[in-house]
Design a binder for these strands. Structure first.
Lengths: 201, 201, 201, 201
DNA sequence: TAGTAATCGAGACGGTACGTCGGGTCTTCGA
DNA sequence: TCGAAGACCCGACGTACCGTCTCGATTACTA
């Protein structure tokens, strides 16, 4: 979780009601009017919460939205294990596509990613809170596949992960249409093929 | 080029001096204080140019910076053709890494990408002016390699391009360290291996 | 007039419309809801003027109200000269009583005086812009009376002025009922008697 | 004493420690940083006392300060009786000058007077607790002088009091330098001269 | 070679949101 | 069970930029 830099407020006294209202308001505003209209002021107004309270618990509106999205998506991607690594990776990647294009989480995450580019702290939090856990699941699944002989023991797993996630962020960053399900399948197939192919030259 | 929406002031009366000063100021500000401190007001002040003048010729600070970056990077990536497609792709990708990490163009492009996420128009321009031309070069080079038999005739070239560009944008978007030269080579090798491997299942 | 401390804005470009609207709004608010509800924010809202514009031309709300009051009272106290100094002084003092108890200028001036107690700058301005000119008129009138033999040539005029103004500010400061017309006459008579009496012991 | 409006917590269980700490903190803050920095929050922080506790016993920071000042000045002006009314009045007025210019009580009383202008209740308390008692002493002393034939039997004593106190509040209200000892003497002499002079016209 | 019409600098303007501060109320927790 | 600690809602603060809008004062094309 993100906490502001100043002397920590006592979080046991935190009002759960305010917290929920804030996150909900942020998400609502983002969905209705787009990330640009998400404003600490607007969130406060909508949530019936004071600005001070928001600033007490989050450093930026990006952080608020990140928490909101996290809450939203929390454990909604239990990594599957059907026994077929290719299928499972497809499922996982598709869930990321889904995140980007979801009507409520999508715009929010897009806004967060925009802010990440000039907010070091938020970047760190996004990674720790969001990306790394997901990636860890992928690794775990891949390693299991390796043990079962579905992947060669010397396969460059980190490389695979980057090649799988990369195109999604690439398309998203440049506002290109996200890959369809078929395209995702092809991508995964492509990457896995390389993983399994013998190193050539 | 980006032009504002209002009735075009389109004229040759434009002051070249103002144009240059504006672009330079924008770039300087971005380099010195980061994209966050790039502001129409600040640009105007630094450039000794009226805000109105800026708004007359650009719709957004993102547009200003994009022009500045374009001017900076113009034709600095003549796509090489050494005869070895793998080597050439490495060179090309490395040049993109270089762009991201260049002390002046890097922060500027980062800022632009941040704005692209909530500025449809800017997104279009970035693609048309920046990305598509580069990608076109890659395609052209790849097709030539195909003709020369370095790549199988049924290779999925668009897939390859995305797999090559993707990880860079992925890392950049999440503020992770950009790949080293060796890593780039490995990436290219990986992607090409898949391209050349026979479709399995 | 009061001007803010920062680099002076070009006052030739000042919008007369904004100036008038601001002063009127300030006065209105003060009359309607009392000085406590006079707020830069409220003034701006009521006047249809941006806060920045107010801050550009005045340093505090006290300064705004002072200008408003000044404008209101400007030359509304042309010092009379009936030939009888006692009568003229009564008239003048009565006009000050009137100022304090006027429905619109009264609350405003009260608020200003409250702020004067912790705002050195405003204090200076109030004196220069308001008090000193009035006092100067009294002096001038008294000196004329002196020349005409209505007052002894060695009369302590500054003393007289303080004794005349003093009780008004005393009563006002402590929220006591302001002197009636008769009381003012008695006061003036009292002070003048001393002025004319031969120094005793 | 001032008590808050809500249902009196009236109890002997009041913590004397908190009371003293609050008053001391208020006075200290006022002395060190001026009345403007005296804040319930600041007092609470400095005194190690809860805001709630302050609100329980005082309605306003002005009330706190008034109590503090009262405690400070309590019976520090035992009205003298040297037998010479002029001298005694000088001494008394001088003590008021002293109050205004005292390093700790001065700023505090100034702050209180500032608040009196928009706080009816505080005004009443200041008068009852502070001004009226002092004025009563002056009256008493003057009446004694009258009986002893030092003042004419028909002298307008209330007038005299106002003329004596007035200039001090006048100067204080407008932030002008307070009268020196000599000036005070002259003032008293002036007022007494009128008191003793036969009514003229 | 003057007019004349646009751009230019400067910066004031109405706005919106910022992040902070203090007011006064209410809750929690430790002694 | 009281009071310190302090979280809460609220509203105002003074600042920063936004994008629009006059202003003269240069330009640089037209007539």
């Amino acid at each position: 979780m993100i906490t502001p830099s100043e002397s920590a407020p006592n979080s046991r006294r935190r009002s759960e009601r305010s917290r929920r209202a804030t996150l909900a308001a942020a998400l609502d505003l983002c969905t209705e009017n787009g990330y640009g209209k998400v404003t600490i002021e607007a969130i406060a107004g909508r949530a019936g919460v004071s600005k001070k309270t928001i600033y007490r618990w989050w450093p930026t509106k990006g952080a608020v939205l990140l928490d909101a999205v996290t809450e939203l998506v929390v454990s909604d991607t239990p990594f599957p294990d059907t026994g077929d690594i290719d299928v499972d990776l497809c499922t996982h990647i598709a869930s990321l596509v889904h995140l980007f294009s979801a009507p409520v989480a999508g715009p929010a995450y897009t806004g967060i990613l925009s802010e990440v580019l000039h907010d070091e702290r938020l970047a760190r939090t996004v990674n720790e809170q969001f990306v790394i856990p997901r990636v860890a699941l992928v690794y775990a699944r891949m390693r299991r596949a390796q043990e079962q002989g579905q992947l060669p023991p010397d396969a460059d797993l980190p490389m695979a992960v980057e090649l799988l996630y990369g195109p999604l962020y690439y398309r998203h960053a440049l506002r290109r249409p996200l890959p369809t399900e078929e395209r995702v399948e092809a991508m995964v197939a492509h990457v896995m093929r390389a993983l399994r192919a013998p190193a050539s030259s």
